[in-house]
Write a protein that binds this DNA or RNA. Structure first.
Length: 456
RNA sequence: GGCUGAGUGGCAGAGAGGCUAUGCAGCAGUUUGCAAAACUGUACCACGUCGGUUCAAAUCCGGCCUCAGCCUCCA
């Protein structure tokens, strides 16, 4: 039985699907005006693992991750660049897909875009107006009236009277309550806009997720996820909008992942202390980054540093080294057995990936100790299978450890030359070649069946 | 000020009322022409702090200290 920490109830609780055997999952995706950073990578990887695991234990999962492709920042950036916002978003959607693919993140089943969902958004705003949850302001915007929604604050544990709205930002005087938020924003001249019952305008920030999630998954679905910083106000507002408009419960389980930090500080665009995924991938293999993300529990903070990435690289090498030289027996090991059982127990406990990884290391240790190759291959198959649930260890070990440069041929040639030198007991020459390759980051390992190599 | 979380060995990071987490790094040994990998063994006060409950607490309870996040946009 899988249990998940639900932000709404602040406790772990058993996952009980609305429809038996099926899970509907919505995750807040990117606002596409810039490259993804490591924090975005974390969301994508974390929920990718959630989906992979749920599927591995037999659930049929519908996974929706939206793209917010119209908002203030996008308009701002497009203006700065002097380009149409659609060019801008198209470019960064493509970049996001490249990054996600590199990290082994499976595509969601549906990836709706805000700009393609305008009719649904307008219809929800209209519902909210009809039900008196929203009002038209003097300056032509449609706003949500938070005081009208009885449960406002139930997700974030905030009470309206405790919130210090306006302390850091000037409150718009046309709002009835400082925390009222815009559902539909009247267009300024030359802004992208759509026709609506309230004139030319565009959606506010939160409404697109309410519209897209309910359109894709129905008014009431199982899991909604996203970064911790979306808890308030974004997700709180989504609840207010969706439940206000539909009159039904919105989401059963809210999952929020912790931040990536740098020097104990949140990695964020506004602080400017972020690394983009592509920057990091210039220096580390994507799988190392993925492994690194999974070394900490998804709700804990994850401190980003070179030291940690290096450590992750070595750890992953260890797993691949255990698989190296084993006959490929993926498919062997059908999930019965102790390791599988313990792996699932770890993952059942709110997706405890550090614990699950520890089990992979125990498995690799067992493989390394084994003398019987076919038995080891059996365990190797199990290691690969369990790794696959985390989106790891699917590469050919040789390819992972050696890379696929064209200089590989030259390396092989030098190794051949060294073999000849060793045969002639010319240790000086042999060691010279070893040192030369070492300088290029190539490590040689002499074994009973000859010399193998890998990149450091 | 309100609301969330968190403080574990050199680093990272699980766990959890009594039993070696795991990985990286270190040390010693086996192995090796030399290495590497692997295996075996092993150190560092391990559980923020002060009290309480208990036969037993890092794990439960309370106070305190420190850190992070949200209450503007942010995954």
């Amino acid at each position: 039985m899988i249990t998940i920490y639900n932000t709404l109830t602040k406790q772990k609780q058993p996952l009980t699907p609305i429809s038996p055997g099926k899970i509907s999952l919505y995750v807040c995706g990117m606002t596409v005006y810039d490259y993804c950073h490591v924090g975005h990578a974390r969301v994508m990887v974390v929920f990718d693992v959630v989906v992979r695991y749920l599927r591995s234990i037999g659930f049929s999962v519908t996974y929706v991750r939206n793209i917010t492709d119209i908002d203030d920042k996008i308009i701002q950036r497009a203006n700065d660049n002097g380009e149409d916002f659609k060019n801008l978003t198209a470019r960064f959607i493509e970049a996001m897909h490249e990054d996600a693919d590199a990290l082994g993140v499976l595509r969601p089943d549906l990836e709706p875009r805000a700009s393609d969902s305008i009719p649904e958004i307008i219809s929800m705003v209209q519902d909210l107006l009809d039900k008196d949850y929203a009002y038209l302001t003097d300056n032509g915007d449609v706003c949500y009236a938070v005081q009208r929604f009885a449960n406002y604050g139930k997700l974030s544990g905030k009470r309206l009277e405790d919130l210090r709205a306006g302390e850091r930002v000037v409150v718009d005087q046309s709002k009835q309550h400082p925390l009222d938020f815009v559902l539909w924003k009247k267009a300024k001249p030359n802004e992208p806009s759509w026709d609506s019952p309230w004139g030319q305008g565009r959606p506010g920030w939160h409404i697109e997720c309410s519209a897209m999630s309910t359109t894709c998954l129905g008014n009431h679905f199982d899991i909604h996820g996203g970064g911790m910083d979306l808890q308030f106000p974004h997700h709180e507002n989504e609840i207010a909008q969706s439940e206000g408009a539909t009159g039904e419960p919105f989401v059963n389980v809210w999952m929020h992942n912790g931040f990536v930090r740098i020097n104990d500080e949140k990695m964020s665009k506004s602080l400017g202390n972020f690394f983009t995924v592509r920057e990091v991938l210039e220096r580390y293999q994507p799988e190392v980054v993925r492994y690194f993300i999974l070394t900490s529990h998804y709700r804990s903070p994850l401190n980003y540093s070179d030291q940690e990435l290096e450590s992750a690289k070595h750890a992953l090498n260890r797993l691949y080294t255990a698989l190296r030289g084993l006959p490929d027996s993926s498919g062997a090991g059908g999930g019965e057995g102790d390791y599988n059982q313990r792996f699932n127990a770890a993952m059942d406990d709110d997706f405890n990936t550090p614990e699950a990884l520890a089990i992979l290391f125990e498995l690799s240790h067992e493989i390394n100790k084994m003398r019987d190759l076919s038995q080891a291959a059996q365990l190797g198959g199990e290691l690969r299978r369990l790794g696959g649930i985390l989106g790891l260890l699917q590469a050919d070990p040789e390819a992972y450890l050696q890379g696929t440069d064209q200089e590989n041929e030259e390396i092989e040639r030098l190794i051949g030359e060294r073999q000849a030198a060793r045969k002639g007991r010319d240790w000086a020459r042999a060691d010279q070649i070893r040192a030369q390759l070492k300088e290029q980051g190539i490590v040689l390992e002499d074994g009973a069946e000859g010399t193998i190599w890998r990149r450091e």
